[in-house]
Amino acid sequence: MLKTRALTANEAAAASRVPLKQVHRIIDAGLLEGAVEVRQGTRVIDGPGLVALKLAYVTADVLKPEARRRAVQSVLNKPEEPVIRDQAVTVEVGVIEAELEQGLAEFDDAKAMVSTDPEVMGGAPCFTGTRIPVHDIVDMMANGDTIAALAQAYPALDERRIGLASIYAAAYPRRGRPRTPPWRAAGPKSSERLRLADVPSA
């Protein structure tokens, strides 16, 4: 059985590989009743709830709504059961737990490789031992840079840490407004006004 632990909706999405929108939809549908609580305005899901969340997601297109709801409820009521049987349906809960264990291990590794220090990059989460913000690397990957190319550009990082950066960023999104690019922050170099007639034609 998966070790009991509580994760926020963002953390659960990152560890379970269930898209955040689907996490909230599953909760809103009442499928995780009793396994979700709100702490300081944030939804938190417990251990059996994580298994039920993953089960609800992977069976969305396989089971009919009522059968899906019964299967999820069975996990919540009997989290120690490795197999769920409902009429002609059999669900291997152990397989789902194994996937979650791997996802949780990578999530823990992603957290462990990041540190924050008010004296370093304004307190932005950086790869431990560097001044490289994690979210900047994730933004570069979103813009098309490959893990291999980034590892070459940033010798202080290896491919595994770069790959784990996306997990960390999914669990802990960048706060506040996006940083202003340096070329925008610099401001105009001249404020001189010119008449259209004074501008030379091409």
Results as ranks from 00 to 15, higher is better:
residue 1 M to W: 03
residue 3 K to V: 13
residue 6 A to D: 15
residue 7 L to H: 02
residue 10 N to R: 12
residue 10 N to S: 11
residue 10 N to H: 12
residue 10 N to P: 01
residue 13 A to F: 07
residue 15 A to Y: 03
residue 16 S to D: 03
residue 16 S to L: 01
residue 17 R to K: 12
residue 20 L to Q: 00
residue 22 Q to Y: 05
residue 22 Q to S: 14
residue 25 R to Y: 10
residue 26 I to L: 05
residue 31 L to A: 07
residue 34 G to A: 10
residue 34 G to I: 11
residue 35 A to Y: 05
residue 39 R to I: 12
residue 41 G to P: 01
residue 43 R to G: 09
residue 44 V to K: 03
residue 44 V to Y: 02
residue 45 I to M: 05
residue 45 I to V: 10
residue 48 P to L: 06
residue 49 G to D: 02
residue 53 L to S: 01
residue 54 K to G: 06
residue 58 V to N: 09
residue 60 A to W: 06
residue 60 A to Q: 11
residue 64 K to A: 14
residue 64 K to D: 14
residue 65 P to W: 09
residue 71 A to T: 12
residue 72 V to S: 02
residue 75 V to F: 02
residue 76 L to V: 05
residue 78 K to E: 11
residue 81 E to D: 15
residue 85 R to P: 00
residue 86 D to N: 13
residue 90 T to Y: 04
residue 92 E to W: 07
residue 93 V to R: 15
residue 93 V to T: 15
residue 93 V to E: 04
residue 94 G to C: 07
residue 96 I to V: 12
residue 98 A to G: 04
residue 99 E to S: 07
residue 100 L to W: 02
residue 101 E to G: 00
residue 111 K to A: 06
residue 115 S to Q: 13
residue 115 S to C: 11
residue 116 T to A: 12
residue 117 D to T: 08
residue 118 P to L: 11
residue 121 M to F: 04
residue 121 M to A: 12
residue 124 A to V: 08
residue 124 A to C: 07
residue 125 P to D: 09
residue 125 P to A: 08
residue 125 P to F: 04
residue 126 C to W: 05
residue 129 G to M: 12
residue 130 T to N: 04
residue 131 R to D: 14
residue 134 V to L: 05
residue 137 I to C: 01
residue 138 V to E: 12
residue 140 M to T: 08
residue 147 I to F: 04
residue 147 I to E: 08
residue 150 L to R: 06
residue 150 L to A: 02
residue 152 Q to M: 10
residue 153 A to G: 10
residue 159 E to R: 13
residue 160 R to W: 03
residue 165 A to W: 02
residue 175 R to V: 13
residue 175 R to I: 13
residue 179 R to Y: 02
residue 187 G to R: 05
residue 189 K to T: 13
residue 189 K to P: 04
residue 190 S to G: 08
residue 191 S to P: 00
residue 192 E to T: 15
residue 192 E to L: 14
residue 193 R to T: 10
residue 193 R to K: 09
residue 196 L to D: 12
residue 197 A to R: 15
residue 197 A to T: 14
residue 200 P to N: 10
residue 201 S to L: 08
residue 202 A to C: 06
residue 202 A to P: 15
